[in-house]
Design a protein around this nucleic acid. Structure first.
Lengths: 178, 178
DNA sequence: ACCTGAACACCGTTCAAGT
DNA sequence: ACCTGAACACCGTTCAAGT
């Protein structure tokens, strides 16, 4: 007796470890000690599991981050810094984010989700910069720079590259608010 | 009669279109109108073809870019701008770069190559910034910011997101040289 | 309601045999 | 030197049958 959630959990683990192509029905079944037939009770096909993984990420990645920062009524500068810390210094975020982005490069379903999330996040940064007092046009350009840098960081770390030093965030923040 | 190079060319096309998992021996053979046995004459296995694709990228991506910029004895500021244009505004670079980076997230072989290229490029940007007169520490931080932004741009465009506007490069250059 | 077991298709890999 | 064709293994998918 394996629940749908256990399949998803195993799927995410496989995704992070070896990319979407590592999310395979038979090995997962073996690992969960059931037959493949069990899988096809819970999901239509392999694609349905992959969709479920995207759904999972959508909930966790965006809303969770913004919701964690928003409630605290601090200054926009502090929110920016908190956002950067959460994304740049989180242990597990780069792993799953990197996996999803990598996947997204070759799968339209993942692509659609990532693009939507991209827009939500970039707009959020832009609004923070406007709150900080920057003119709209400058805020837009800098929000994009910061967001591109965040994505680049995820990408580099996902490839096993060294994470950026804390000093970098300071410099980046200074640049953005200059 | 299909040459090794034709297999590689077909492989790159498949990689860009559908990621590494789309680089499949049987469909490629069908497309080239030979049997799978032909493939195994030219390559040890599927992995050997993937290695050849990485080798190809290594030659084209780094050396080609830097070599195209370096010979012209212009100012470092102009080189920076040229580098940004080449990478941000190239039509095919984001496609193959995005495909390789995506692949790299789940494959140690690709990972190794990407990491080395990352270091080469970041160092190049840092040296340009130092030539522009920035102190070493500031140059290091800003080189990283720029390089992260470049990678982010590749990532976003590879997902089908809109490329950044030309105005963004101006703003980014201004920030870096401030 | 949830799972097994057998069957089939697709593709990676091998290899003896052909030209 | 380069390729074919047949064979086998692995995994996605289906489905009738079990509890």
């Amino acid at each position: 007796m394996v629940s749908r959630e256990e399949w998803i959990k195993a799927g995410i683990k496989a995704l992070v470890r070896g990319g979407p192509e590592a999310v395979r029905v038979e090995p997962l079944a073996k690992q969960l000690a059931v037959t493949k037939g069990s899988f096809y009770w819970h999901f239509d096909d392999r694609g349905a599991l992959l969709d479920a993984l995207l759904e999972q990420w959508k909930r966790v990645a965006t809303l969770a981050v913004i919701d964690a920062i928003e409630p605290q009524a601090i200054t926009p500068q502090e929110r920016l810094r908190a956002l950067m810390m959460m994304t740049f210094r989180s242990a597990e975020a780069p792993a799953i984010e990197g996996a999803i982005r990598a996947w997204s490069a070759s799968d339209p379903r993942a692509q659609k989700v990532v693009r939507r999330i991209d827009r939500v996040r970039e707009r959020y940064v832009r609004e923070l910069l406007v709150e900080c007092g920057l003119p709209a046009q400058v805020a837009a350009a800098r929000a994009r720079v910061m967001y591109l840098a965040l994505i680049g960081e995820f990408s580099v770390v996902a490839h096993g590259g060294a994470p950026s030093s804390p000093a970098l965030f300071g410099e980046l923040l200074r640049l953005l608010l200059a």
